[in-house]
Amino acid sequence: MPMDARDIEKLILEALPDARIEIRDLAGDGDHYAATVISEAFRGKSRVQQHQMVYAALKGEMGGELHALALQTSAPE
């Protein structure tokens, strides 16, 4: 069963309440998304650490309901 973009956003916001999030459904199938996540929590962290934080927020949905998520992450400017 595909995952809704609102559910992805909700999970990320639970872990990163200050995050600004933009999610795009790349294939229209609810399985392939691109997300831009901007959060102060990312400041001083490597890109890998930032992505790990987002994947942790998704609570194991990657590879299950959510097949692919292309991430762009950063701290606010």
Rank of each mutant, 00 (worst) to 15 (best):
P2M: 01
P2W: 02
M3A: 08
D4P: 00
A5H: 05
R6D: 13
R6N: 12
D7M: 11
I8F: 03
I8N: 04
E9F: 00
K10F: 10
L11A: 14
I12Q: 05
L13V: 06
L13S: 10
E14D: 14
A15M: 03
P17T: 07
D18C: 03
D18K: 05
R20Q: 15
E22R: 15
L26R: 09
L26G: 01
G28C: 09
G30A: 08
D31T: 11
H32M: 09
Y33D: 04
A35P: 04
T36R: 14
V37K: 01
I38E: 13
A41M: 08
A41H: 13
A41R: 14
F42W: 10
R43C: 11
G44T: 12
K45R: 15
S46F: 01
S46H: 00
R47D: 09
V48M: 13
Q52C: 00
M53A: 10
V54C: 07
A56P: 08
A56M: 01
A57I: 06
L58P: 00
G60E: 11
E61A: 14
M62R: 04
G63C: 03
G64M: 10
E65A: 13
L66W: 02
L66H: 00
H67C: 00
H67E: 01
A68S: 13
A70E: 06
L71Q: 05
Q72I: 09
S74N: 12
S74Y: 10
